[in-house]
Design a protein around this nucleic acid. Structure first.
Length: 154
DNA sequence: GCCAACGTTGGC
DNA sequence: GCCAACGTTGGC
């Protein structure tokens, strides 16, 4: 069992969007960073805990709890000429990019990045480090437990 | 919209 | 394999 923080721009896919999707589930398409890809492809297991994080928006922060719902499989957008995620160097035989499906567990009242910064227990979280841009980061179990039991009140 | 930090690309 | 140039991320 692993724990993850996964960033999504709410203008693209928000927690409310996720709640309306079939099965309240979404393919985590569009990851084009090898480190983040490798987390999905090599380490994620069905049932892993996910903090669904809103990035690049007015109030960035954790917007919900989710779970990993599938193993990794090739990201369909790499083959789609019309997608901004199209990758000419990828082929069906040699896919480059993978994604898992992520399923909503529950929406929460936002735990903002600013609030997270107030808690020394979370000081080592990757997302809080200066200059961190990685869209998928592993969470230490104690960080997951702290956030889900101390910072989430609903 | 600014800009710092980081990742990727490609010439050499 | 180095490294400068460029593109992207994402908080502020």
């Amino acid at each position: 069992m692993h724990y993850w923080l996964m960033k999504s721009e709410p203008a693209d896919v928000s927690i409310d969007d996720l709640a309306t999707f079939p099965g309240q589930s979404v393919a985590w398409y569009g990851v084009r960073n090898y480190q983040a890809r490798n987390f999905m492809r090599d380490q994620m297991e069905i049932g892993d805990g996910v903090l669904f994080y809103h990035s690049n928006c007015k109030i960035p922060g954790i917007a919900g709890i989710a779970r990993v719902a599938t193993h990794a499989y090739p990201d369909a957008t790499q083959f789609d000429l019309k997608s901004k995620y199209f990758d000419a160097k990828a082929s069906g035989e040699q896919p480059r990019w993978f994604n898992v499906d992520v399923q909503l567990v529950k929406k929460i009242s936002l735990v903002s990045l600013a609030e997270m910064r107030l808690h020394p227990e979370l000081a080592r979280m990757r997302t809080l480090q200066a200059g961190n841009r990685l869209s998928i980061t592993p969470l230490a179990p104690d960080e997951w437990h702290y956030i889900t039991t101390q910072l989430i009140r609903d």
